[in-house]
Every structure is written in structure tokens, then in C-alpha cells.
Amino acid sequence: MQTAPFALTIARYTLLEAARNRLAWLALFAIAGALGVAAFLHQVAITESREVGAAVVAAILRLTAVFLVVAFVVTSMVREFNDKVLELVLSRPVPRVSYVLGKFVGFSTAACALAVAFALPLALFAPGGRLMPWALSLACELVVMVAVSLFCVLTLTSVVAALGAAAAFYLLARSIGAARVIAAAGESSSAWTDRAADWAVGAIAKLLPSLDQWTQTAWLVAAPPDASQLGAIVVQAAVYVALVLAAALFDFHRQNF
């Protein structure tokens, strides 16, 4: 059986679901809300009103995008489990890898479209040279979250558990940089518990992308990242997606339906 055609078909249907799921409407509401907040702050701010607007809109849209993508992936997959669509697909001569890759490609395409849609209103506050790296980084972040959500929902198969796990992953990946700085105090400590904590945090950090360094609002209001910084984000995203998809495939192949 050929993997690619099935994967593309599944990807197309996933995108169709995204279009019919009113995801675009939700995105529009989010953009309108964020711009409303920015307009209010524009009236309040005495100076740097563009910077204030850019910072607030970027932060709101970034979090909203992650929430929308994770919620969409998890609820869509759980609906397929409950409606027995998955069993129906797997009863056909479809390789499991096609199903996972197809879902990933479909969700990722929707996520990239969301990243572009959320970057557009920021053109009101920041020039294109600053906006492009932000949008690219947001797309990378969303694609990573698609892979993580897919892994969580394929493994845990319940909405609450998968949403919780994906949210925990995101929070940890956003805060691991600060946690490492704090834990680094243990390096020079004589207490073994401090050194153990430092080691444990370091080990966890190695298994996570440092999302706190991605999609920074500072890129919009100050200096954009240099090419090497942006390249490192793209490479990290690619490697992490490959790792999480491999883990998802491993677990998916072990499940009996």
C-alpha cells in the first residue's frame, strides 16, 4: 500500500473539517478582541502606543493560537474515536503511518494558516521585517503543538487528559528557561538535593524545546532575531516534530482497536 496518497486524503479531510468547524470564525473573533484591547490601550497609553499595542496583541494572539490549535486537534481526534471513524479507516488497507501523518499534515496546514492569519493584524503595529520572523516562529510553535497534541490524544484518548497533558507540556516548555536559571544555583551548592534538582531540571530541559525563546514579542517592538536564531528555531521544530511523531507512531502501533 502506498502511504502518501492515503496521508494526503486524510490531510485533505482534516483541513475540510477545520474549515467546517468554524475555526476561522473563532480566529476572527480572537483577532477582533485583541484589536479591541489594543485600541483601548492606544487611548490610555501616553507614549509608545504602537509598542504597547503590538506587545498586547502579539501576546494575546500567540496564546489564543496555541489554545485553538490544541483544542481543535484534541476534540477532532476524540470525535473520531467516539464516532468509530478511526476503526472504519483502519479496517481498510490503510497503513497506520498514513493515518498519523495525514492527520499531522492536515492539522499543521490549518495551524500554519492560523499563524499567518494572526500575524496579519500585527502589520498595523510592526513593519514586515519584524513581523515575518514572528510569524515563522509562531507557525513552528503551532506545528510543534499539533504534534504534541496528536501524541497526547492518541495515547490518552480522552479530551480532559489530552488537553491537560498538552497544556502542561506547553507551560513547562515556556518556563523551562527560567527554571534552569533558578536550578543552576544548585551547581555550586554542597547539598546533594540542590545538585539533584539542578540535574533533573537540566535533563527535562534537554527533552523540551525552549518555547520561551520562540515567538518573542520583543522581536516586534525592538530588534528582530538574527538568521541563526531563527534557523535554530526551525531546526529545533523539525527535530522535535520528528521525535514526537515517532513516539506517537510507536504508541499507535501498539494499540489494539
Partner: peptide, 16 residues
């Protein structure tokens, strides 16, 4: 799949 998982983990550790 197992090889891809091992390779992905190794690549992640290198990137980290």
C-alpha cells in the same frame, strides 16, 4: 518506527 524514535531522541539531545 523504533529506529525513527531512537534517531529523533538522539537528534533532540544534540540540538539541546
Amino acid at each position: 518506527v523504533i529506529a525513527a524514535l531512537a534517531l529523533g531522541l538522539a537528534a533532540q539531545l544534540v540540538v539541546a
